[in-house]
Design a protein around this nucleic acid. Structure first.
Lengths: 342, 342
DNA sequence: GTGAAAGCGCTAACAC
DNA sequence: GTGTTAGCGCTTTCAC
């Protein structure tokens, strides 16, 4: 790879002048400029971003933390984030955070030591020490949280309104006549879990349906825990709900698997709904009713927030709450089912 | 972030000495060593990897190119690669390559300008110029191809034996009595497509079944093209195969969708099989028979190849061909279907 | 066993 | 308009 020195030598100027035309940072004589451009072309020179970063403290790189387990939602989100970042001239460097919550800070430190310009956090797990660390860090580099942290301090964050979405889904189920509705919650200390849970709960209450604690099962995001949830509802506790709402599609799919195993039909015997609208939700059978997170928009807004913070470090932090949309598919809708069969 | 200077100052030594204990690169007096260690601890100092890279020309970063469209296989593979890389102290920086094949080299150049130590290519699309460029580049940094390039020059590559796998799948279908078997091919110029195609073809020939060109549909990896393939077989050409084998699970799922749409049952009317064993294949209905790529092993071997090449730059290039395993699920197996219903 | 200094590729004062 | 030079954080001769 040619360096700026090579270009300077070839064009008979100093590196400073080359740098000037490269960054358009000071007027350069038209003739010399042309010579330099030609040399750049001939040598196929491209500035070394790392070296640039060394000086400018800008690496054009965004770090991102993603949970380690395969919830496709995060990989779909990641793809859109990478796309949006690329459009702004940034690359994305990933660090997946595993089971051990104590490793989270190490993961972030690793990223910091790579001079990242900012951080997108998809994995905050409610740990006090981590958030303290992140808030401190956010004084130095932009940090975007992909979750509702429910903090008193304002942070940059973007997420889908889980309360509203889950309420809408639950109301849909209620409107179909369901009263005995099980809920698959996510890990309580993860902030994102609560909004969705309260959306479910309030929908029941507003409809005059008694909220029952036993109808809530706390899953752990893995597909298997959706399976366990259904087992808990139907086999262990024999609560036999007529519908199950899950706080993630993945766990909803797990629940569907169990329900099919015990010979119940979806949606005739049990209606199922999820949240996220991951890619596979439309492909399983029956296709899953869910609340679609506007994933592409989420990614774009995250990068917007980031870019804005880079350009205006003193801009105050913003929380962007996006609305998704309910997607009704066959897993809840008998009528639709029959229509499609025709 | 504390720098090596801060540590040096605090311990009353020169930066050189600090560097020595950091890298264990020369003996340091036990006492001074302890003082330095203490300072490192107290300042929570971690060496800046970028700056290290500036000097050593090692960035502890691997670049990876991934196709832009959502074939979940690549995101699953990516996850395992990231995992394996992390275990070796490397981070992964992604560049997704979009529709425009002419952008591929630019994507790679962007990565190179970030001082990556090596490159993992998941996206080679048969373009002559790109391969020439990559072969040249591989003289400088390790490049691992995740595909069978079928070149005369040896390259570092790791992939699943698509010929063997597809032959096995096709034979399975033949053993179930199918003779009229459609094949959904991948884009012909992508190298990986050919092995799988010939596996299908040879299985037919060996079984004494005539190979018919019209029974081959060239898809483009998108799920929609699997749908189109089934439409081509059943509606446009009325070839009515009793089974369809697809070179990727995603296209197989697309084909399933079309088949269901026209009211045919799987597997009773049409048997379907794919290749990859992506996560969703076991979750759709009916679950998809496929050939499982040993994805975790693929990732590990890729990183092994990479590490080996880093440590022994003159090591000769190796091609690692891994065997997958056939996973028979209900989409081909009526018997299994009945058993599971009991 | 340790320190001074050069240099990786680049940018940004500061001179002229 | 252009060149010289310092320095980003680190490693690595080369002295001592």
């Amino acid at each position: 790879m040619a360096t700026i020195k090579d270009v300077a030598k070839r064009s008979g100027v100093s590196v400073a002048t080359v740098s000037r035309v490269l960054n358009n940072t000071a007027p350069v004589n038209y003739k010399t400029k042309e010579t330099i451009m030609k040399a750049i072309e001939e040598l196929n020179y491209k500035p070394n971003i790392i070296a640039q970063g060394m000086r400018t403290k800008k690496s054009k790189t965004i770090g991102i933390t993603i949970p380690d387990y395969i919830n496709p939602f995060y990989y779909e989100l990641f793809k859109y984030i990478e796309d949006a970042a690329k459009k702004e001239g940034y690359h994305v460097i990933v660090s997946s955070t595993g089971e051990d919550i104590n490793e989270d800070i190490n993961c972030i430190d690793d990223l910091i030591n790579r001079n990242i310009d900012g951080l997108i956090i998809c994995t905050y797990r409610g740990d006090k020490e981590t958030i303290k660390y992140l808030l401190e860090l956010s004084k130095k580099i932009p940090i975007i949280f992909m979750d509702n942290l429910q903090l008193d301090k304002p942070v940059n964050s973007v997420y889908t309104d889980g309360y509203k979405g889950m309420k809408e889904i639950t109301k849909h189920l209620i409107s179909l006549g369901h009263k005995n509705i099980g809920f698959v919650k996510s890990i309580a200390k993860y902030k994102v879990a609560n909004d969705r849970f309260y959306g479910y709960k309030d929908a029941l209450i507003e409809a005059g349906i008694e909220f029952r604690d036993e109808l809530v099962y706390e899953g752990n995001y893995h597909i298997q825990s959706g399976y366990e949830a259904a087992k808990y509802f139907f086999t262990d506790k024999k609560l036999n709900p007529s519908a199950i709402v899950s706080s993630t599609d993945l766990m909803a799919i797990g629940a569907m698997n169990y329900i099919k195993t015990i010979g119940l039909r979806i949606p005739e015997d049990v209606a199922i709904a999820g949240f996220d609208d991951i890619y596979m939700s439309r492909l399983i059978s029956p296709p899953l009713t869910t609340y679609r997170q506007p994933i592409e928009e989420i990614a774009k807004e995250a990068i917007n927030l980031f870019i804005n913070k880079v350009n205006h470090p003193n801009a105050k932090n913003r929380t962007i709450v996006l609305n998704g949309e309910m997607v009704i598919r066959r897993s809840t809708d008998i009528l639709r089912n029959e229509i499609e069969r025709i």
